[in-house]
Design a protein around this nucleic acid. Structure first.
Lengths: 192, 192
DNA sequence: CTCCGACTATGACAGCTGTCATAGTCGGAT
DNA sequence: ATCCGACTATGACAGCTGTCATAGTCGGAG
């Protein structure tokens, strides 16, 4: 978990992702990322010849993969899995993270979309891919719970919409109530 | 509707809001805003002595008020209003806007939260207020439709969560499917 | 040893940012 | 006519941005 145990390259990607979560793409400076990652500045152009775009794209990719793994952890841990329980687990992760960090960090994908959807096709595409990476294990889990594939696709999209929006409202109001609310309100739809 | 008909000061606020929607707070340059607003640069320090923070805050305020008025328009136009119909109407606005502008512009409040929630208390507070301004007429409408106030508060929050998330996913994938999906899936919960 | 590739170090670059100081231009009230 | 306040114009400022050129270090293979 500590940054020191990772290779410098991955540390940079991780640091970039964390910085994204806090201040968005525009607010993320390469020099600051390098400091946070405790990495040499010269390594930037070595590992990321594509510049900031590449670094941000890889940060999104990393985040998507991480989120997907987290979903699978939840699924495998649940004894009698239901859609609403999975959703509650994911929402719970976010609520805990937001409170622990005092609402300082949100979703890196949201940051990328908001800042770059119209100005940077590379980043926008990486964000889209990250969302798909994240959504896939959710869909698969819902299928394993007996939902038809088509239906599972819809429900996983619904989950991510509600989650992203709830993260936003929670950060705006410095209160995790919206997160808890969507978990509660969506349960009947998800389990229907 | 044209920018020329408004006073310079309001043109600047409006231009700032539109720029926010496209590139976030970090990506919004004051000089560019001034050009878009066709306003004199010197007026910035005259009308907005509080600097960029004040301009962004006022842009959020303007946006919240505009969104609230739009909600009231929908409500007053509906003959047999139901929660799900109101939600569909609001979602429809966004879907139409996204498609018309080719997903270039999202929600200014989302942009502000993502970029500034942890770095700029002034802006974060303005975003929180704008969300409340927006949510209030929705809550009131739901009360008028017979929901208990407490319940109406929950449902309006749920709507905004789903909407904000769906805007995000729609922009990421350049497809309004998520917006249409949340309108459909949430209907039973809203009308229950 | 020698050479080479992987990686690091550092300084410079133009461009942009928000902010400020200073001066200027009006229109209208006195 | 003169004065004042509202508004505009312009240039400068330090600070930061991402990117690049150049040179350096270092470890291991030949």
């Amino acid at each position: 978990m500590s940054a020191d145990t990772r290779a410098p390259r991955e540390r940079m990607v991780y640091a970039a992702a964390q910085h994204l979560r806090r201040a968005g793409v525009g607010g993320t400076g390469l020099r600051q990322v390098v400091v946070d990652a405790d990495a040499p500045r010269g390594s930037l152009q070595h590992y990321f010849p594509g510049g900031k775009d590449q670094l941000v794209a890889e940060a999104l990719d990393w985040s998507g993969t991480w989120a997907a793994a987290r979903v699978e952890e939840h699924v495998s841990r649940m004894r009698r899995p239901t859609p609403s329980r999975l959703f509650k687990a994911v929402v719970g992760d976010w609520a805990a993270d937001l409170e622990a960090r005092e609402f300082a960090r949100g979703c890196p994908v949201a940051a990328a979309v908001v800042d770059c959807a119209d100005t940077n096709e590379t980043v926008r595409h990486a964000a889209e891919t990250a969302l798909e990476t994240w959504r896939r294990p959710i869909t698969d889990a819902l299928v394993a719970m007996g939902r038809p594939r088509r239906r599972a696709e819809s429900l996983s999209t619904l989950m991510l919409c509600a989650l992203e929006g709830a993260i936003l409202l929670s950060r705006a109001g410095r209160d995790t109530a919206p997160l808890r609310l969507v978990a509660r309100e969506l349960a009947p739809v998800l389990d229907a």
